[in-house]
């Protein structure tokens, strides 16, 4: 079997969908952050795929990926900090308890 771009893209899409499913259904705030990481990795997979198959000379996608990983790390750090500060106030990380801002 010859590896094609489509397979990478499909895998990334599947990973992205799994991430979204986790993002929407998780009750634990940390798992939501983990799902976001999954989605970002799906994006990274896309970028790498495109970089290899379409732009093998200048590999701009790989540079993007490096940036995404960096920013994702920062975002995870901030996200965990937010979760921690909410936990300090409400003593829970259950997403369904954080519904104060409704209608």
């Amino acid at each position: 079997m010859h590896l094609q771009l489509q397979y990478f893209l499909l895998l990334a899409a599947a990973l992205f969908c799994i991430g979204i499913y986790g993002l929407i259904t998780s009750r634990n705030a940390v798992r939501v952050l983990m799902s976001i990481e999954l989605m970002l990795n799906a994006v990274n997979l896309n970028l790498m795929g495109f970089s290899n198959f379409i732009d093998p000379q200048e590999i701009k996608g790989q540079v993007f990926t490096v940036f995404v990983i960096t920013v994702a790390a920062a975002e995870a750090a901030v996200g965990l900090a937010i979760v921690l500060s909410i936990y300090r106030n409400r003593e829970t990380v259950d997403m369904e308890q954080f519904n104060l801002l409704k209608w």
């Binding site: 979204i20 993002l23 929407i24 259904t25 998780s26 939501v32 997403m95 369904e96 954080f98 519904n99 104060l100 801002l101 409704k102 209608w103």
Partner: peptide, 17 residues
């Protein structure tokens, strides 16, 4: 229709999706 503003962040994400 105001009940669409459910207060659940995940619901907002779903709506965006």
């Amino acid at each position: 229709l105001k009940y669409n503003v459910s207060g659940q962040t995940q619901f907002y994400a779903l709506t965006i999706l």
